[in-house]
């Protein structure tokens, strides 16, 4: 079974400003915020005026979040406490958005995947989303057996958080699910339980 080198694995070309967008909506986490800072520095004033950021702060202290906000100044920043909260906010904006909105995502793959997914649900072409991967290599993994999602996966194999099967994490990636595929690693020999190794840190 092919595990790596699979073509469905997305590529993230890096953030670049869209000078023609009427609105630039950026979602990032703390690691991705660095890429956004660079983007803002590169882009002109026009871009900045039309840009806003949803920052996933996760477990950052309020000082840390404030420091990031300051770095992104003068772009307007909304702080979301979790990825789920950020995506909920994004969905709300997209459902009421008009033409000319450009979507950006920077940070971990689950973040980028969730942004692309929310965009697709609102008829935004996944390839039109400008993306940059920064920080952790952790993955969201769907168990092909029970269909449950396991979040923030850093090891391979990984135990499914739902059915408990030991899953081989493949590079096969579904944009619709925003997840990599996990397949039972010891189906052919249940007595063989390979030790999980950190692979996606």
């Amino acid at each position: 079974m092919l595990v790596s080198g699979i073509k469905s694995r997305p590529v993230y070309p890096g953030l670049s400003p869209d000078p023609n967008a009427r609105r630039n909506l950026i979602v990032c986490d703390r690691a991705g915020a660095e890429a956004v800072v660079e983007l803002v520095a590169r882009a002109g004033e026009d871009f900045v005026k039309r840009a806003s950021v949803i920052l996933v702060a996760d477990d950052a202290s309020s000082e840390e979040a404030a420091a990031l906000q300051k770095k992104l100044d003068p772009v307007h920043v909304e702080v979301a406490c979790s990825l789920d909260a950020a995506i909920a906010q994004l969905r709300e904006i997209l459902s009421g958005a008009s033409m000319g909105l450009r979507l950006y995502a920077a940070g971990s793959e689950p973040l980028i995947g969730s942004v692309v997914q929310a965009g697709a649900e609102n008829f935004i072409d996944p390839l039109s989303v400008r993306t940059e991967h920064r920080g952790s290599l952790m993955r969201r993994v769907q168990c092909v057996h029970c269909k449950g999602m396991t979040e923030n996966v850093v090891t391979n194999p990984v135990k499914c958080a739902h059915c408990g099967l030991l899953l081989l994490v493949r590079d096969h990636y579904s944009r619709r699910l925003a997840a990599f595929q996990g397949v039972c690693i010891n189906a052919e020999d249940p007595s063989d339980s390979p030790e999980p190794k950190v692979e996606f840190q």
């Binding site: 079974m1 092919l2 699979i6 073509k7 469905s8 694995r9 769907q142 092909v144 493949r170 590079d171 096969h172 990636y173 579904s174 944009r175 619709r176 699910l177 595929q181």
Partner: peptide
């Protein structure tokens, strides 16, 4: 898993 993928993506493996 594959629904919605394109020719190169579903043939990825």
């Amino acid at each position: 898993f594959d629904i919605g993928m394109n020719f190169f993506e579903w043939h990825g493996p």
